[in-house]
Amino acid sequence: MSTTFSVLRSGPMTTVQDAGRPGLLHAGVSGSGPMDPPLFAIANALVGNADAAAGLEFAGMGGEFSVSAPVRVAVTGDADVRIAGEPVAAWESHDLLSGQTLRVGALQRGVWGYLAVSGGIATPPVLGSRATHLRTGIGGHEGRTLKAGDTLPLGETVAAPCLRMAEPFVREEGPIRVVPGPQDDYFDESAWDLLAGDGYTVSPTRDRMAQALEGPKIAAVRGHDIVSDGTPLGSLQVPGSGRPMVLMAERQTTGGYPKIGAVASVDLPRLGQISTGQPVRFVRISREDAENLLIDARRALRSRLADLMPKAGLVCDSGFLLDVNLIDGVAAVAENE
């Protein structure tokens, strides 16, 4: 009998995501996947899942959930998390027993948080991935945001100790770094001056597709229409409205607006985490510098994940192991009812 994950209550924007759906950009299918891949990877690692396992992404608040058999769960993002009404820490894994309610409440800061469940969400992959692409309604659970009453299958949980991070996960602050191109020649220096200034805030219309910005209009001196071409992740494009936007995880794969640059990959999750109405400033860096930052950040993350530590105390693992051993008995009781 496979374990199920039940949605008792859902936040407004809770979706199933995995590492994404690569390799199909040429067919018009965007990669989708998490808005904040490092936070997603940490959540998976905390419950002992492989990188490819699917979990939940939520905006603002997650919801309330229960499981049919014991699992480990972990929330990344500074959310108010409760199990059976008791507050528990984010950024570490906890046992969730059948019959207990996991409540993933509001994020204290940031926009996107993650809930990983040991075994991973096991909805059927679509085009090789479980990532939800909301705009086209593919992947995840019926291609949509979760709602109360949804029941999702889980993969197999392997008993293991609960984990925590050796050090808190902290991101550097400062302006969002941008690599110029491929249509930076459509703009003059005044565009970069505006982007570097304090005029831009995150628009309420932001979503998984684009981080739309409000602020001064940018004029493309060579016009706002190009012959449509491929849109890399993080493209900073300026449509005819003059309001710049950054293309995010669920972006369209091609577009006809000039792209003054692309946000450095290392800064894209940080940009996605800036709340609506908050200011955003940009600064130009070279491709080489951006590549170095990304390579360093990936190495640092891998080392963080390798350094996850078993949590102190015996309650967690011994209780969990005991419960896992009881699964067959519980199932037998359920079948007799």
Binding site: G181, P182, D229, L233, R287
Partner: peptide, 14 residues
């Protein structure tokens, strides 16, 4: 052309 730190745009014509 440079298209960020993970992509190149090979432009044959406008």
């Amino acid at each position: 052309l440079c298209a960020g730190d993970q992509a190149l745009a090979v432009e044959f014509s406008s």
